[in-house]
Amino acid sequence: MASLRDIRRRIASVHNTRKITKAMEMVAAAKLRRNQSRIEAFRPYAADMIEMMVDLATYSEETRRFALMQERAEIRTVAVVAMTGDRGLAGAFNANVVRKAMEIERGLREDGVETRLIVVGRKGIGTLTFRGCRLERSWQGLSDRPEYHDARAIAKYLIDLYVGGKVDRVRLVYNHFTSPIEQTLLDDVILPVPREAVTGEARNFGPVTYLFEPEANVILESLLPAYVEIAVYRSLLESSASEQGARMTAMRNASDSAEEMLESLTLALNRARQAAITQEILEVVAGAEALG
């Protein structure tokens, strides 16, 4: 049986661990709230931008000709973008993204399609490099507080890959923020810009005659990169919120386990102490009897 000192030492250590996991849970909760309000704040911009594209597309017969919307007849190379976090201790958050990205890659390669792997987040970079994957390009340091111009830089890189003919399609693998305790892995095609993204009922172009400066299709073509930027920025924000949510859940579970462990250790400690006392009494009684 473990000695009293050993048990006391373990209790102190579990206690300290629980303090850390509790603190991490609270930090994650605070960051999650901040991220949620940033997702909220971003919504009107994304909605206005996409609606305008839909409206403009009804005026423009030439969307087929736009470089960003041209479907390639043959898909030879696909870029897979995996959105992970910069930090661990978030349950299976990072592992899920990496596994999904590798699954997609394997599937494509079995079909004879070449792949280019692009990774956001230190954790994904670490794991994939360790597994011997060649990364085409990677970014880190964005997952804590992604900014729109970060998304623009990534979007610009992806657009250049696509327009330059180096890839025929770009897929984005990221965690969609469903709720603080639930994340859904998504896999979206962001390039070419899907036709459905800019088709729909025109919102307010109906009865009025607009003046366009420059022409409607030129405006639409100039705004199209914003579609990719919005998709990237949204996935950065959602991934960041999901990461905090996953960490919060993981840390809550860890705190609960620590709590349970403390209970059973305290029980063991009390038993051991009782046993020691009983032992001592027995010894005293035995000694007294021997003397008498």
Binding site: V208, L211, F212, E213, P214, A216, I219, S222
Partner: peptide, 19 residues
């Protein structure tokens, strides 16, 4: 700041979309 020059807009302006 339109891309083709500045545009002053007052009330009753014609419907317009500009970059």
């Amino acid at each position: 700041p339109g891309i083709e020059g500045e545009l002053g807009i007052l009330a009753r302006h014609q419907p317009l979309v500009t970059l």
